[in-house]
Amino acid sequence: MSVILQIETATTSCSVALAVDGKVVAFKQINERNIHAEVITLFIDELVASANLTYDNLDAISVSSGPGSYTGLRIGVSTAKGLCFALDKPLIAIETLEAMAYGIIHGDDFTVDEDVLLCPMIDARRMEVYCALFDVHGQKVRSTSADIIDEHSFAEELNKHRIIFFGDGADKCEATLGANPNAQFLPGFVNSATFLTHKAAEKFDKKEFVDVAYFEPYYLKDFIAGKKAL
């Protein structure tokens, strides 16, 4: 039996889940900016207690590794690494966009056709998003990148496939890309630690762990601090 604690803080959603043998048994989540540091350890304590487990019962910690919010990623990864060090447990890292795609593929609320492509998008700034393309089996068909979206974005792929755009980055792109009949936008998508479940179980079985001491989040871009208003 595998018991994996899953942590997702790469976007506005602060989410933790507990999975046993690849099945989510409990999760807590709040979708609100700048609250991750305040609630994440509380959520984890409540989650473990609600499942009648102790921290020693955990077999591994899984974390969403980015790209995404610089601050959110630092909080999530630091929390995961701290638990791994304290409990002497392995760390599983899963790219955020990949986890989002698996959230659609393995979700109960949405069915995708074989020739559809999935495009998870995370808001960066202005018209820039972190994005990638996946087929319906979760295979990446276009590399993760930080793209400035205009009317020509994804033109080649949209000529051949219907693409489902989702995530907080997709919301601001609908006006630019939505005129294409092959572009479909999925409203109300909220990122979740439950989306880590499939890959976390797979990596645990294969013992695909990262080095806790040296692992860093996948920021994709350097952090640029904003200036305070005078």
Rank of each mutant, 00 (worst) to 15 (best):
L196V: 13
V39W: 10
A10G: 01
T54C: 05
N180F: 02
H137R: 15
K221H: 08
I7T: 01
P181E: 14
L18N: 10
L230E: 14
E32Y: 14
T11G: 10
S2D: 07
P181Q: 00
Y214E: 06
A19C: 08
A124H: 13
V112K: 12
A37S: 15
I92H: 12
L18P: 06
A225H: 11
T9G: 06
L177N: 08
E156C: 07
F215M: 13
S64G: 00
C131R: 11
S62Q: 06
D123T: 01
A213M: 08
A60F: 07
E8R: 00
N191Y: 00
P181G: 02
S50W: 12
L196W: 13
E151L: 03
P181C: 01
A193I: 01
I75T: 07
K203E: 07
F195H: 15
F215D: 07
N182Y: 10
I61Q: 08
L53G: 00
F195W: 12
E98W: 04
E98F: 04
N57R: 06
I94D: 09
I35E: 09
I92M: 12
A201F: 13
L118K: 06
A201S: 15
S153N: 03
L58M: 04
N52D: 13
R33M: 05
L87H: 02
T176F: 02
I149K: 09
I61N: 06
A175F: 03
Q184L: 14
S143L: 11
A26S: 15
L87E: 04
L97P: 04
E98S: 12
M100P: 11
V136Q: 15
T111Y: 09
D211W: 05
I224D: 08
I149H: 11
N180E: 04
A101P: 03
G82N: 09
D147T: 13
N34F: 08
F223S: 07
S50K: 12
C173K: 05
G188F: 13
L196S: 05
S65I: 04
A213F: 14
C131H: 12
P217A: 06
S192N: 12
